[in-house]
Design a protein around this nucleic acid. Structure first.
Lengths: 136, 136
DNA sequence: CCAATCCTTCTAGTTACTGGAAAGCCTAGT
DNA sequence: ACTAGGCTTTCCAGTAACTAGAAGGATTGG
């Protein structure tokens, strides 16, 4: 099948498939006589794997690692678990950071009367004009 | 004061200050006879404002908007509030997405025994080989 | 046989910086 | 006066992960 079909079947845009090939995440596809890239169902499955892993927030590099482990019949599940655990911790850190932002901002938004007066606790806080710091 | 001093006082790296100037977030600094950029305390305060707003996750473009409002004595707090509220919603969306990832991944990590057997539910899920989807 | 649709490669833009190179300026010490 | 150092300047390139668009070749349906 051609790249467009593989794209539809996997959910990965054709442009992105070419991009993945260019950065070495997937092997260069074999070519038809026309020069068009040719894909089979295994390729589509690999693309779906990538799609899911990316959807879980793994970086392209990490997806490469997972892919290698997936394709290695002798892999140790410990490696996969370690990789995933580390990623889980990174996600947790990101969530914590966002929550900090969120709470500070919500507090400020609540305190802003939001009318046509120029007075605004949000700006006051950003300018460092008040002592209240919710998130250090 | 020179850029290095402003950087130290504001917490914004010198490189970043130049970058902010280059993208028009801040006005081009006046120059000393040497050609060095010159800053005063108001500039440092502006940089701190930027620093805080970025720390709350506002994009550079949004910081530009907030900065304009901050410097506009006739602004309406409603504008500031609207901008911040929208940003708050975006943060919430990001947190929700991350939580979805997090929960799926945690579930998988828990189920992976993590030893030297090649069996791994994480890979199985990524490959789409099981029916359990925690996050749609 | 031609138009529509697909494919190819290449370049460049996105976000928000960060690193490094080559060179100019300024001050303190010898 | 000279020099070493530490500051500054500009510009170029790289990061992550695509995405848009241009110019042109291939294929297919009617």
């Amino acid at each position: 099948m051609q790249i467009g079909t593989a794209a539809r079947k996997s959910g990965v845009p054709a442009k992105t498939i070419r991009y993945y090939e260019s950065v070495g995440l997937i092997a260069a596809a074999r070519r038809e006589s026309s020069g068009y890239r040719a894909y089979d169902d295994l390729d589509v499955q690999t693309l779906r794997f990538i799609q899911r892993a990316r959807g879980l927030g793994f970086s392209v590099r990490h997806v490469g690692d997972l892919l290698a482990l997936w394709q290695d019949r002798g892999r140790h599940s410990a490696q996969v678990k370690a990789l995933s655990k580390k990623h889980l911790e990174e996600i947790d850190a990101k969530i914590a950071a966002l929550r900090g932002m969120r709470d500070t901002l919500e507090h400020l938004v609540e305190r802003c009367h939001g009318d046509d007066r120029p007075d605004c606790p949000i700006l006051a806080d950003l300018a460092g004009l008040n002592g209240v710091e919710i998130v250090k």
